[in-house]
Amino acid sequence: MMKRDECFRVLARHIGDEIVLPVYSSAFDWLEIAPRVLNYYSFGAMGLGSSCALGFALGKPDKRVIVLDGDGSLLMNLGTLVTIGAAAPKNLVHFLCRNGTYEANGSHPIPQPDVDFAGLAQAAGYAQCVEFTELADFAAALPKLLRQDGPTFATLHIEKGALSPEFNYRTLDDPQKRDDFRAALRMS
């Protein structure tokens, strides 16, 4: 079992000009660790992070798109796995932070704690599917994982976070962030 912020700190070392799309609790962790214009924070339309990422991946095939998804979020829109499997963007890397709860909504448990997300992605048609429970394994595999032809899926087994995190969504909702993101995308 890993900690999400530790995983993200390792990931941040490998990030250059990729589009990174973190959702809900991950968005707050990632913002603290790697604030940058090419972050797209996805919340509100819960579960649609990977769908937005698919759009970016198809629209910018020359750029890597990295999703930092949550297990609760993915369960809200599970069909997205099949859609991504069908569109098969080589430049999409889909990380799933699996903590077994809807953390951002008060840490309610997900309905089926034993669901095998990497297996679901495999059955849906992702090109690469892996899972990690040890930080050292994750760190060792990451360089290849980020470069290989996708769509790539990786479950990160992480510990539960705080019971009722106090999130200030307004720090993520700032319209200036989206304007900057758009401008940066046009430049890149």
Binding site: V82, T83, G85, A86, A87, Q112, D114, V115, D116, F117, A118, G119, L120, Q122, A123, A124, G125
Partner: peptide, 17 residues
């Protein structure tokens, strides 16, 4: 046609539990 005609439904059900 389905978006991904070869999707492995039995695999999805197995992974779901």
């Amino acid at each position: 046609p389905l978006p991904n005609p070869k999707v492995d439904f039995a695999g999805l059900a197995r992974s779901a539990g």
